[in-house]
Amino acid sequence: MENRLSKLRKSMEKSTFKELSFSERMRKEIHKQINMPAEGDEVITLAILQLLLQEKTGYELTGLLRSRGFKKFEDNEGSLYTILHMLEQKRLIASCWDSEGTKFYQIIDKGRKYLRKQEKTSAAGRIVMKGLLEE
C-alpha cells in the first residue's frame, strides 16, 4: 500500500502539483487543519443517539450537532446520512417516512442499551481522569 501511495505522490508531483504554490501562511493553516484532533466517530455516534431520544429529521440533527460543536458536517451534510444508515444497519435506530415525504429517525431499545453502556463507560473514564488530574 505504501509503495502505491509513494508512486501516486511522485506522479502527482510531476503533473498535478507542479504548478501549485502555497504561501507560508497557507502551509501553516493546512498543517493546522491536518493535525487537528478528529472528532471521534464514537463521540459523534453517542451525540447522535442522545439527540435521537426524541424523533428528529436529518436536517434537525445537523443543526443540533453543529450547536454541540461538531464541525464534521459543516460542509458535508451527506456524511451524517452515512452514519445514520450505519446505525440503522446495526439496529440502534429506526427511521420512518411521514405523509409529506420527510424521513424521521429515532433511537430504539438496542440503541438505548448501547447508549447507557457507553455513557457509563465514558463517565467512569472522566472520573478516573479527574482523579489523576487532581493528584
Rank of each mutant, 00 (worst) to 15 (best):
residue 1 M to P: 05
residue 1 M to T: 14
residue 1 M to A: 15
residue 1 M to K: 08
residue 3 N to C: 03
residue 3 N to S: 09
residue 3 N to A: 09
residue 5 L to K: 11
residue 6 S to W: 07
residue 8 L to Y: 08
residue 8 L to C: 07
residue 9 R to L: 10
residue 9 R to D: 02
residue 9 R to K: 14
residue 14 K to H: 09
residue 15 S to T: 14
residue 15 S to Q: 06
residue 15 S to F: 10
residue 16 T to Q: 02
residue 20 L to G: 00
residue 21 S to W: 02
residue 22 F to V: 08
residue 24 E to P: 07
residue 24 E to D: 12
residue 25 R to G: 08
residue 29 E to D: 08
residue 29 E to L: 15
residue 30 I to Y: 04
residue 30 I to E: 01
residue 34 I to S: 01
residue 35 N to W: 04
residue 36 M to S: 05
residue 37 P to H: 12
residue 37 P to C: 06
residue 39 E to P: 04
residue 41 D to A: 12
residue 41 D to W: 08
residue 42 E to K: 13
residue 42 E to V: 12
residue 42 E to C: 06
residue 43 V to Y: 07
residue 44 I to S: 03
residue 46 L to K: 11
residue 47 A to N: 03
residue 48 I to E: 00
residue 48 I to C: 08
residue 50 Q to W: 02
residue 53 L to I: 12
residue 56 K to I: 05
residue 56 K to W: 02
residue 59 Y to S: 09
residue 61 L to F: 06
residue 63 G to F: 04
residue 63 G to V: 03
residue 64 L to E: 13
residue 65 L to D: 00
residue 66 R to Y: 02
residue 68 R to T: 02
residue 69 G to Y: 07
residue 70 F to I: 13
residue 70 F to D: 01
residue 72 K to P: 01
residue 73 F to T: 01
residue 73 F to Y: 12
residue 75 D to M: 09
residue 76 N to P: 00
residue 78 G to Q: 11
residue 78 G to Y: 11
residue 79 S to G: 07
residue 79 S to K: 15
residue 80 L to M: 10
residue 81 Y to S: 11
residue 81 Y to C: 06
residue 82 T to Y: 15
residue 84 L to Y: 04
residue 84 L to S: 09
residue 84 L to Q: 10
residue 86 M to H: 13
residue 86 M to N: 13
residue 87 L to A: 07
residue 90 K to T: 03
residue 90 K to D: 11
residue 91 R to I: 12
residue 91 R to P: 01
residue 94 A to N: 06
residue 95 S to M: 12
residue 95 S to C: 12
residue 96 C to T: 09
residue 96 C to V: 08
residue 98 D to M: 10
residue 98 D to N: 14
residue 99 S to K: 15
residue 102 T to R: 15
residue 103 K to W: 04
residue 103 K to V: 15
residue 103 K to E: 13
residue 104 F to T: 02
residue 105 Y to F: 15
residue 106 Q to V: 14
residue 106 Q to I: 12
residue 106 Q to C: 11
residue 107 I to Y: 03
residue 108 I to Y: 01
residue 109 D to H: 13
residue 109 D to M: 11
residue 110 K to I: 02
residue 112 R to I: 13
residue 114 Y to N: 07
residue 115 L to M: 11
residue 116 R to N: 10
residue 116 R to P: 00
residue 122 S to I: 10
residue 122 S to L: 14
residue 123 A to M: 07
residue 124 A to V: 01
residue 124 A to Y: 05
residue 127 I to Q: 05
residue 127 I to E: 05
residue 129 M to V: 01
residue 130 K to P: 00
residue 130 K to L: 02
residue 131 G to C: 03
residue 135 E to Y: 07
